[in-house]
Write a protein that binds this DNA or RNA. Structure first.
Lengths: 339, 339
DNA sequence: CGGAGCATTCAAAGCGCTTTGGCCGTCTGC
DNA sequence: GCAGACGGCCAAAGCGCTTTGAATGCTCCG
């Protein structure tokens, strides 16, 4: 059932039927009712390919997925996707993943713009002065950043959590508990979120008249193994920290393993706070000693990204508005006063 | 730059240019060279929307993503995606994720077929007599199943690992080590992979003249917390098992926690073997006691799925061929002879 | 009462590609 | 020398929608 058939059936022109269905005002209410009714009865659904060709709109949102033999997709992605999908589902919005060479995403971005494959994209794990953001702004494809870039000389839309504030609060709490040497096991500091977290910690220390020992800030990919290695390095080094802030629950697993292996204990010998993105399959309460966390649901962020992107596509939103979410600091058994 | 312009520029018809570019034989080699050359020089790329409308092919593969507030996307998905993306990247194949109500995926499948959104789809986490498989076979959309369904009265293409064989081997090894009471902490037994694993274990026990205690087979969603609970339940129950097989590394984290909390040890009091899908962020070697595993890279499976799907789309593959991969049994410190 | 103004509707021209059916030589075989 | 095959190319008809520009019939006002 296509437009031509439907219009013939109704003895109306394609124009009128199309307009009636798309809510244009120059159709009488009675005609519109007839058309909408017939369309429903005959299960008419406009062919998206045709509509696409005519309008250039695809009704999909895109994501350029960095891949490569040595590239690991962040497990957080799945949770983010849960949220995104959950919102998108209600709006018949599909998500197109365009795999790209991690070292050359630009080609892919250009391709999806040239091909008009999607109406908007979102960008994740941004870095300072992120080239993708600049590129997209230049290409004119609507986009939304999950996270933030810095050092760009224009505004752009993003949604981010207050990483600096969260780690500032967490570090401040540790300082108040008497800790003087605080370690940070961070993610890749080429990414903004990690920079912000480190900044937060430094600010808390400075605020207390302390200074961060450069040896106490470690930046690694967020795996269990790396968490373990980093913790051992910190705890076996000189002036070992009495408290550690950790950028992910997964790394914390490794930290806890290291602590145990060294015959130490949490929180007796080491206070530990980690950032929790709220995974269904690994919870801070389930650590041997329940883990204190800075908590923010990455899933909720996914839903919000979808929501804003949908609004953007519908033309309801246009500005370069940034949105920063507060982060909960949840205290559990893993922290204690310094000895 | 579109076809019309290019053909005018070359003083050829659109027909000829189109044919030259698409490798049809009825174009002289010289003309083809001229055309291809000019196309490259002017950066001509056929408009996919137009091509789609004309041919009905989209050059994308699809996946229906079950979502919902209570639905968690499997973290394995990310690794699978890494493999899929890695292959797809080289072929400019994009992946369309269509979020669907987890309880009504049929509507979404019908939609993507009606809309001709994708050239093929893959289906994951199949169950016995999976309705999606039957539906897709009926709708005529090319598809590939990752995993297997059972009890369908027709052949269909799939790629699966030998879950039954893997768990059979693992259980057999435990039996040979003298274990008589073997527990199984499994995933959702409504899914085929879990059924196969349980079948493998049962077969090993039966083969040794033993029988599986119904209380020793637990089926839960694969989270750390559930692994913990299941392990406690098993280890604190009557006739506690001396060995446990576990369907995922994540659940094993919980098992290890339970063991420790009960003052037991691996492998002294409990031998443990888990299935390892090979995550970059959590490795069996990194467990307090290195974990013995049945191992199969889910990432490799993703790449293979993309490869077969691409072949299918290109018309190079057509049958309902099933493909079963062997699974490695990797012995590490977590197993020992029964006391 | 004539024309401006409005509400509805329509025919037809895109959107940019693929593909059908044909045309025009040139070559082959008898 | 001619029918038929064939290589190479083309014009035009789709694919199914949106949108432009125009037509039609009414109402309303001066």
């Amino acid at each position: 059932m296509n437009l031509k058939q439907l219009s013939r059936m109704l003895e109306l022109s394609q124009t009128t039927v199309s307009r009636a269905l798309n809510g244009y005002p120059e159709v009488s209410e009675e005609t519109r009712r007839r058309v909408v009714d017939a369309a429903k009865r005959h299960g008419y659904r406009p062919n998206p390919s045709a509509r696409r060709l005519a309008t250039g709109k695809s009704g999909m949102i895109g994501y350029v997925l960095p891949t490569g033999a040595a590239v690991d997709i962040d497990p957080h992605f799945v949770e983010f996707l849960s949220g995104l999908g959950d919102y998108a589902r209600g709006h018949e919005l599909d998500l197109v993943l365009s795999p790209a060479d991690a070292d050359d995403q630009e080609t892919t971005y250009r391709r999806i713009v040239a091909n008009r494959q999607v109406d908007a994209v979102y960008v994740s794990s941004p870095r300072p002065a992120d080239r993708r953001v600049a590129l997209l702004a230049g290409l004119g494809l609507p986009f939304l950043v999950h996270g933030r870039s810095e050092g760009l000389d224009f505004d752009y839309p993003f949604i981010d959590i207050d990483n600096e504030g969260a780690f500032h609060e967490a570090a401040r709490l540790l300082v108040q508990l008497g800790h003087r040497r605080i370690g940070l096991i961070n993610g890749d500091t080429r990414e903004t979120f990690a920079i912000h977290r480190e900044r937060g910690v430094r600010r808390a220390l400075t605020g207390a008249g302390l200074e961060m020992d450069a040896r106490h800030a470690v930046s690694v990919a967020m795996t269990e193994e790396n968490g373990y290695r980093a913790a051992r390095q910190l705890l076996e080094g000189e002036a070992a920290p009495t408290a550690i802030l950790c950028s992910s629950l997964i790394m914390s697993l490794g930290v806890v393993r290291a602590v145990r292996e060294l015959g130490l204990s949490v929180p007796g010998d080491l206070s530990l706070i980690a950032h929790d993105d709220v995974f269904p399959w690994l919870k801070p309460e389930s650590f041997p000693v329940p883990l204190s966390t800075t908590r923010s649901s990455i899933r909720a962020a996914g839903a919000r990204v979808a929501e804003r992107l949908a609004a953007r596509i519908a033309g309801l939103e246009d500005g370069g508005r940034g949105e920063v979410w507060p982060v909960d600091l949840v205290v559990r058994g893993s922290i204690a006063g310094a000895k």
